[in-house]
Design a protein around this nucleic acid. Structure first.
Lengths: 125, 125, 125, 125
DNA sequence: GTGGTCTAGACCACC
DNA sequence: GTGGTCTAGACCACA
């Protein structure tokens, strides 16, 4: 996992984002054990407390659970993961829509653009 | 204009991006005079050299031209602006496609998602 | 507010409990401004971060909201308060039921006990 | 027996409470021999004098008697135990009533709540 | 002044 | 070793 941070969002929120994406994309599969808070914090170059806060947030969202002595694990509840995936997709879609809106593209225009690219892909293959 | 920077891209490139977007979106209309390099650098809180480099890049791309004594101006060449818009849109589209790809959406899925939203908008109105 | 703590529950959780009760009981009415984090922490004799965590938890539960510079306020959403009241009541009821269960009282026995007391109250008045 | 203490009640009183509950609930049956003061104090992590005071209080209440050489025993007087049970129950009832009073429940409301739960239990079974 | 974030470092329970 | 809690103290944005 690459740990690069922006300055427009709290660190812990970006950590949540990163780990969540790893879970959603399957890089961290259901049931997988996460590294320890301390190790992850070292990796990311942040304070363990900051990493802890991020993981607790993920726990509250039901994507992760912790076992006292054994460590933290990705949930095995596929529904929770899929719901998070859906929410993230919607969020990305919306920010994309607004960004493209500034460039003068509305939904219809984007659909056209996508279909254009699709034909090209098929043409290439 | 808001000047917030990420750490994963050179400053000057982010400056180029920001100004380019302002031109493309019409916030800086064709023929408009840009503030002086020194003023823009102050605004953005960057070194004037960095801002200078960004503006030269925009000049190279034909979106801006400078007149020795009067300052820098947005191009009046609509074709250049439209071409930049097209390029930027494609770039954003691609990064969006790859991001959504990680979440399991391909072009067809995204088209469906967009059409879904479109119907909803019409239903709401 | 009295700040006395047990050792069987994290401090921050007890702080949540205390403030929640104050809101539910109306001691802190809807819309009321809470003292600043620092002041409350001083009052309670805890670290400001601990108090902060408690208040953020209340914020997540919708019982409190914060305004950047002005401070924190009790929600004006009566439904949220009533829902919290209901939940707290149920929780207290259950722990009471189990405690009385150890003494050999079941629901029916408790109802009898309560009715007994009720008659007595009426007799006294 | 779990030994966790609050800070709002003298230690010895909490010890009395704990042992009394054990007797009332039958965990310490009539006639059972209690461990020595020293052992009990160790278990609970308190000073033997404190434990001694608690046991003397229980003796005064007639729930425990001591035999010079053999140690301390739970009373075999069922009436005494029942009376203690009754008193404890009333005490718990009262503190419960006052706590629920703060949440807006009076005796009648609580009876309703209890009957509600009773029906549900029967429905579930 | 307000809330919010982050770090550093300590201590605890659990196994 | 693990997660969890707490403190102390710093810095920031906002108005």
């Amino acid at each position: 996992m690459e740990w690069v941070f922006r300055s427009d969002l709290p660190l812990y929120a970006q950590l949540v984002e990163k780990v969540k994406l790893a879970i959603i994309s399957g890089e961290l599969p259901p049931g997988a054990r996460l590294n320890s808070v301390r190790d992850l914090a070292m990796e990311a170059g942040v304070n363990p407390n900051t990493m802890q806060r991020a993981l607790q947030e993920l726990e509250r969202e039901g994507l992760v659970y912790s076992q006292r002595t054994a460590g933290r694990f990705v949930t095995v509840n596929d529904a929770a993961i899929n719901s998070a995936k859906r929410a993230l997709a919607e969020e990305k879609l919306n920010s994309f829509l607004s960004a493209m809106g500034e460039l003068g593209y509305d939904r219809a225009g984007l659909i056209a653009l996508l279909q254009e690219g699709e034909e090209k892909e098929h043409g290439d293959s």
